[in-house]
């Protein structure tokens, strides 16, 4: 007799546990307001990445096309993957002395692991994170970027006040 009671209580418990699960999915079925999907390409206009988002390394330029990079090469040294290459050149300054300035700050996005060491160690805060994340291109060579814009120059340090 006991085993028969057990048999039927098993059925009852099983069915009620299944019903509990079905209630969960059923509740979501009748409340479509809880949909969490983001419709990505459509929401491009409103999609705002976090300001710390690590999209790519960029070098900000001001309105005079000037940046802060001195070409010291510390970022290149600190990069664990060799995704930064600094090419410098020597140009005469106003006093006629030859000084080293940045020619090309090459950034290989394809090799970058977004560890933030370059940005963290840059002594002049010349580079920072850009929020662009749509990096898909048809050719790998397009991922090798030159961060300083053509014709840009080093921003003069303002006289210490």
């Amino acid at each position: 007799m006991n085993s028969i009671i057990e048999y039927f209580t098993d059925i009852y418990k099983g069915v009620s546990s299944l019903w509990a699960g079905m209630r969960v999915t059923g509740r979501y079925f009748v409340s479509p307001g809880e949909i969490v999907t983001e419709q990505y390409p459509e929401n491009r206009a409103t999609l705002k990445m976090e300001e710390r988002f690590k999209g790519e390394v960029v070098m900000p330029h001001d309105e005079n096309n000037q940046h802060l990079c001195t070409g010291c090469g510390i970022c290149e040294l600190n990069c664990p993957n060799g995704s930064i290459e600094i090419i410098t050149k020597k140009v005469p300054n106003e006093e006629g002395k030859m000084v080293r300035v940045i020619d090309e700050h090459i950034y290989h996005l394809s090799m970058c692991t977004f560890c933030e060491l370059c940005i963290k160690t840059c002594p002049s805060n010349a580079i920072e994170w850009g929020q662009d994340f749509e990096h898909a291109v048809f050719d790998r060579s397009k991922l090798d970027k030159v961060l300083n814009k053509p014709g840009s120059s080093l921003k003069k340090k303002e006289a210490k006040s």
Partner: peptide
């Protein structure tokens, strides 16, 4: 569509 709504998704769209 049914399973998408149950799973808090939109489904084919």
């Amino acid at each position: 569509k049914v399973c998408a709504v149950m799973q808090n998704r939109i489904g084919p769209n």
